[in-house]
Amino acid sequence: MRVVFLTWRDSTHPDGGGSEVFVEEVARELHRRGHEVTIRCARSDGATAEADLDGVRLLRAGGRLTVYPRALGWLVRHRRRVDVVVDVINGLPFGAPLVRRRGVVGLIHHVHRRQWQIIYPDVRGRFGWFVERRLTPALYRRTPILTVSDASRDDLVAIGFDRALLTVARNGVGGSPVDAGRSPSPRISVLARLVPHKQVEHAFAVVERLLADYPDLHLDVIGDGWWRPELEAALARHGVADHVTLHGHLPASTRDRLLAQSWLMLLPSVKEGWGLAVMEAAVQGTPTVAYREAGGVAEAVADGLTGELADDLDDLVARTGALLNDHDRRRAMGTRAVERSATFTWQATADVVEEVLRGTTSHDQVRTGRRS
């Protein structure tokens, strides 16, 4: 098949995250299986217009919003060279069904209601939520949709998507355990983009409230983003700047070493489609404490087995403190986390995606007035 992913960003973009990793890992696997794969996304400062991603063609053009019309225009111009389009909907859709009857698959990691409210608490957020809640389900009402967790599937059904057209393709995870050794002193980590809805400030609050019991507690924040200045100010407000390191974006090897040294990872995000960071920590034998109501995180974390789910900030603090104090339970969780992470592979993810793509492929899909 000739497959094109229309996506907002790639993993080199300053705002790139788990959604971009999903697209690129699946694209690589599809290429290894003999498919011709292209990713069309926005171009960030310093990025080239075109790149090769292990055989996958990566095309970058447009900015935060202009990427959408430019990608759709490109799709119209190259309509005869594409068998199936994966329209990656991160809040806003590309609108591929406007120019194709068939050969379109949507990919939605999660519903963004809380994100719209947090990032744009004004008319922009209300408009974005209107588009996602009303226009997108109507436009994609006959389109097969991929998502990454049962929780996201249920949320999509709640805003009008047809459950029969929804397929769950859970994230895989790469990497292998590194021999870094646990830190001799209590150390926790957060692996996330630095954006408001990741609520990294909650991890600062955890450190602040546990310092009396663990005066040498340290937090490693792995990741970068436009919210970093606000987080630096929050560090001062919480009085924990000496106990927190904002590492920024790190190479995978350094990221894995820090995760392997951590006693626990915290994921205080408002909402996640799945929570790839949970599995990346699990590969290193590090349990995760996250919020129960954060969507797919409640599936990525096996509560009580590979980590724990908290109900609110007070509960997050309490559970983190209890696990820091219980070495045997924490180690047992880490062992189970490693075992469970081995069951999530990108090959298995691509199996599901490939099956859905094959079911929608057509060589006569464009709305040109011809019979199809």
Score class of each variant (00 low, 15 high):
residue 50 E to W: 06
residue 15 D to V: 05
residue 63 G to R: 13
residue 15 D to W: 08
residue 56 V to G: 11
residue 82 V to S: 05
residue 58 L to W: 07
residue 39 I to H: 11
residue 37 V to I: 12
residue 18 G to R: 00
residue 46 G to N: 01
residue 83 D to V: 01
residue 59 L to H: 03
residue 25 E to R: 15
residue 80 R to D: 15
residue 90 N to D: 15
residue 86 V to P: 10
residue 41 C to D: 03
residue 47 A to T: 10
residue 73 G to P: 01
residue 34 G to F: 02
residue 85 V to D: 02
residue 53 L to M: 10
residue 44 S to R: 03
residue 98 L to Y: 08
residue 91 G to L: 02
residue 91 G to E: 05
residue 18 G to F: 00
residue 60 R to Y: 10
residue 86 V to S: 06
residue 97 P to L: 14
residue 53 L to N: 11
residue 71 A to F: 06
residue 30 L to N: 12
residue 16 G to H: 00
residue 23 V to K: 08
residue 12 T to V: 11
residue 43 R to E: 08
residue 27 A to Q: 07
residue 92 L to F: 14
residue 68 Y to T: 00
residue 71 A to I: 04
residue 70 R to A: 08
residue 52 D to E: 14
residue 58 L to H: 07
residue 22 F to Q: 10
residue 91 G to Q: 00
residue 50 E to F: 03
residue 96 A to F: 05
residue 32 R to H: 12
residue 32 R to T: 13
residue 34 G to L: 04
residue 71 A to R: 01
residue 95 G to R: 04
residue 103 G to C: 12
residue 64 R to N: 05
residue 81 R to Y: 00
residue 92 L to A: 13
residue 17 G to E: 07
residue 45 D to L: 13
residue 62 G to N: 04
residue 51 A to S: 15
residue 76 V to Q: 11
residue 94 F to C: 05
